[in-house]
C-alpha cells in the first residue's frame, strides 16, 4: 500500500466514484470507473476525445444519472441535491452562456439562482480582465467568454471546481491567461479542481493529480509525484521476452528497435531493478502517452477480436 492510498482514508474526498458506468444505447461511455480525488488537489483529467471525460464530469455535477455504480461529491450524491450543487462550480465544454445576456446580467442571474453568491468577486475579476460589463457576451471573444464563465463558477465559492475542456477552443495567449486566472483563484481559496483536456501540455505545470481516461475506462490515477516515483523508463539490449524484469511490477509499454528495447514500467518500491537495464526517470508526458498508447492497442485488438 502506498503512502497516497493511506492518506486517502483520512483525507476528505472531494470526488469519489465506485464502479461508475454510463451507457448510451449499447455503448459504454464510461465503465467501471473507480477513483478518489482528495480535497485540495488540482487534478488533470486527460484522455483523447471520446474517452469519457465529459461523461465523468457530467456525472459528477449531477447532469447525468449513472447506469452503474455511484458517484459522491463530498460524500453526497450530486443528483437532484441542490445542497451538493451549491458546492460545485462547473464550466461546461465550449463555456455556454446566454449569448444575449451581458456579463452584468449573468452575475445577477447567478445571484438569483444561488444562495451563496459572491457577486463582488465576479465583478472584480471581470473588471481586472477588462471585460465590458454591458455588452452581450455573445459578442465577446472566446477567451473573454471563458473568463466570464470561470468568474461565474468561482462566484459560487465552490469547494469543487469542474472544468470541461475550458481552454480547448482558445488561442495560446488566451489559454495562458485563463490558466493563470484559474490557478491564482484556486490558490487563494484552496478549492479542489478537476479540469479535463485532451492536451496534457496545457495542464502539466498546473496540476498535482492525474486521471487518465481512455476508451471509457480509467487507465491511471494518482498524485503526480507518486506516479512519477512509481514509474521508470528502462533501456537495455533488445529483448522481446514477455516476462517482466526483476524489480518491476508491470511493463506498461514496450518498444523495440533492432538493437535495444525501451520499457516503461511500474517499479516495485521495495526491490532493486535488474542492473542489466539502464534506469531513467519518466516525464509526465511519457507516462500518459504510454498508458494511452497501450490502452489504444488493447482496444484495437478487442475490436478486431484478436487476443494479445
Amino acid at each position: 500500500m502506498t503512502t497516497n492510498d493511506q492518506g486517502a482514508h483520512t483525507m476528505e474526498l472531494a470526488l469519489e466514484t465506485g464502479a461508475l458506468g454510463k451507457r448510451y444505447g449499447r455503448a459504454w461511455a464510461l465503465r467501471d470507473c473507480s477513483l478518489h480525488l482528495p480535497a485540495g488537489r488540482v487534478a488533470a483529467l486527460v484522455g483523447p476525445n471520446g474517452a469519457g471525460k465529459t461523461t465523468l464530469l457530467h456525472l459528477a455535477v449531477g447532469l447525468l444519472r449513472p447506469d452503474a455504480g455511484q458517484v459522491r461529491v463530498f460524500g453526497r450524491d450530486p443528483r437532484d441535491d441542490t445542497s451538493v450543487l451549491a458546492e460545485i462550480g462547473f464550466v461546461a465544454q465550449d463555456t455556454p452562456l446566454y449569448r444575449d445576456f451581458t456579463a452584468v446580467d449573468l452575475i445577477r442571474m447567478g445571484g438569483k439562482l444561488n444562495r451563496r453568491w459572491d457577486a463582488p468577486l465576479a465583478r472584480d475579476r471581470l473588471a481586472s480582465l477588462g471585460i465590458p460589463p454591458d455588452r452581450p457576451v455573445g459578442r465577446l471573444s472566446g477567451g473573454q467568454r471563458a473568463q466570464v464563465a470561470l468568474a461565474l463558477a468561482l462566484a459560487k465559492r465552490p469547494r469543487l471546481l469542474l472544468l470541461d475542456e475550458p481552454i480547448a477552443s482558445l488561442d495560446p495567449l488566451a489559454r495562458r491567461e485563463f490558466m493563470q486566472a484559474l490557478m491564482g483563484a484556486v490558490a487563494e481559496s484552496g478549492t479542489t479542481v478537476l479540469l479535463s483536456s485532451h492536451l496534457l501540455a496545457d495542464l502539466e505545470r498546473a496540476c498535482d493529480y492525474l486521471i487518465v481516461l481512455q476508451t471509457a475506462r480509467v487507465q491511471l490515477v494518482g498524485a503526480v509525484d507518486d506516479l512519477l516515483a512509481q514509474h521508470r523508463t528502462l533501456v537495455g539490449p533488445r529483448s522481446t521476452d514477455t516476462g517482466t524484469p526483476r524489480g518491476v511490477v508491470s511493463v506498461v509499454r514496450a518498444r523495440h528497435t533492432d538493437r535495444q528495447s525501451t520499457l516503461l514500467v511500474r517499479r516495485d518500491d521495495d526491490a532493486v531493478i535488474d542492473p542489466a537495464w539502464i534506469e531513467h526517470d519518466v516525464t509526465l508526458e511519457d507516462l500518459v502517452l504510454a498508458y494511452l498508447a497501450e490502452a489504444d492497442t488493447r482496444a484495437t485488438r478487442t475490436a478486431w477480436e484478436v487476443t494479445a
Binding site: 455535477v61 437532484d80 445542497s83 451549491a86 461546461a92 446566454y98 439562482l113 444561488n114 451563496r116 464563465a149
Partner: peptide, 16 residues
C-alpha cells in the same frame, strides 16, 4: 441547442 442547460441546471436550483 446552445448548451446553456448545463449552465442553468448546475446552479443551486433543481431542474424540477
Amino acid at each position: 441547442e446552445q448548451g446553456t442547460h448545463r449552465l442553468v441546471w448546475t446552479q443551486s436550483v433543481s431542474r424540477r
